[in-house]
Design a protein around this nucleic acid. Structure first.
Length: 307
DNA sequence: AACCCGCGCAACCGCCTTTAG
DNA sequence: GCTAAAGGCGGTTGCGCGGGT
């Protein structure tokens, strides 16, 4: 049957948004809230398609957006989540504070996709399946993002992501993590990452939208993984989280959570996936439970999907 | 200085899912 | 239960910018 276009295209502005349009849109949304996108342009006095307004707000104008400089931790998480979830950018974005699905998708397409492809190619070329994998895990506490073969041709973009010349060895990682721990204790609301703080938008800084201050006020719950794990005595850096042996540390057998598929490769149950991706971590009990889910996913994905 | 090329990213497009009547 | 509208999502496009020649 075919859907009718979301709005008449005649007489509508297209392409890049002007500062004036941005102001109109954000003022309107601050006043009336999100939603009713189709009617919004008319009510706000914008000559834009409703979808376009929604996209502009979600991907650019929203106050909790964090721009630029995807940290190595975030990058690592994206890779792992992508391995787990595939191109479900909104789900991946849901676990990265202040990041939009569009941004992650773009970042993947321009950087990580190639990187991972290179890595896979390397693995297939010079590895014997199991031993190589074990050795890799032991020698590389931070498994993903190898020596970055991706050459950033644009010098101006180099500041956005910290690429190490080589993988950090375990002692380097330990030092780094110690530093992270120290810093998170002195600045409990801040998460240490490799970004140059100068590159954060002034607006964000002024609004106090630091890396860890994001929260979904509207829903009244946090969707921020890093916030979720940064809680009181349970402070934990993402690096640690990603590198630790959770099943051991938590005395938790994640295999119990996997759908039994007899002798086949275990598959993730949809229920777990749903639980985890929608988890709110609103109380400590939930945090513990969902941490289990999360760690199970990441650990399992290494084994199940990483072949 | 001018042109070409590649990259990054914002924005668009069209399909799918959810919601409301 | 059905249908259309609205919202959401992932894939793709195209523009602007900077580096290289």
């Amino acid at each position: 049957m075919g859907r009718s276009p979301c709005c008449a295209k005649e007489g509508l502005n297209r392409g890049a948004w002007t500062a004036h349009e941005d102001k109109i849109l954000s003022d309107y949304i601050k006043l009336h809230g999100e939603g009713k996108w189709r009617n919004l342009p008319k009510r706000a006095g914008l000559r834009r398609c409703g979808k376009s307004c929604r996209l502009r707000w979600l991907n650019y104008l929203r106050p909790d957006i964090k721009r630029g400089n995807i940290s190595s931790d975030e990058e690592d998480l994206i890779i792992r989540l992508h391995k787990l979830l595939g191109n479900r950018w909104s789900l991946i974005a849901g676990r990265l504070p202040g990041r939009t699905d569009n941004e992650i998708k773009n970042y993947w397409n321009t950087n990580l996709g190639k990187k991972v492809k290179d890595l896979q190619q390397q693995n297939t070329n010079n590895s014997t399946p199991k031993n190589a994998k074990i050795a890799h895990k032991q020698n590389n506490p931070k498994p993903m993002v190898p020596n970055s073969h991706v050459v950033r041709t644009k010098a101006t973009k180099c500041s956005k992501v910290l690429f190490m010349n080589s993988l950090p060895n375990s002692s380097t990682m330990q030092n780094l993590q110690n530093k992270v721990e120290t810093e998170t204790k002195t600045k409990p609301s801040m998460h240490v990452d490799s970004r140059d703080s100068d590159s954060m938008s002034n607006n964000q800084m002024e609004n106090g939208n630091e890396f860890l201050s994001f929260s979904d006020a509207k829903k009244g719950l946090s969707t921020d993984l890093l916030v979720d794990f940064n809680m009181g005595d349970h402070d934990i850096s993402l690096s640690e989280l990603l590198n630790s042996d959770f099943s051991t540390a938590c005395n938790f057998d994640y295999n119990e959570l996997l759908s039994p598929c007899s002798d086949q490769t275990p598959m993730f149950s949809d229920e777990i996936l749903k639980n985890w991706t929608e988890c709110s971590f609103v109380d400590e009990k939930n945090v513990t439970n969902n941490l289990h889910y999360f760690t199970s996913f990441l650990e399992s994905s290494e084994d199940v999907l990483g072949e």
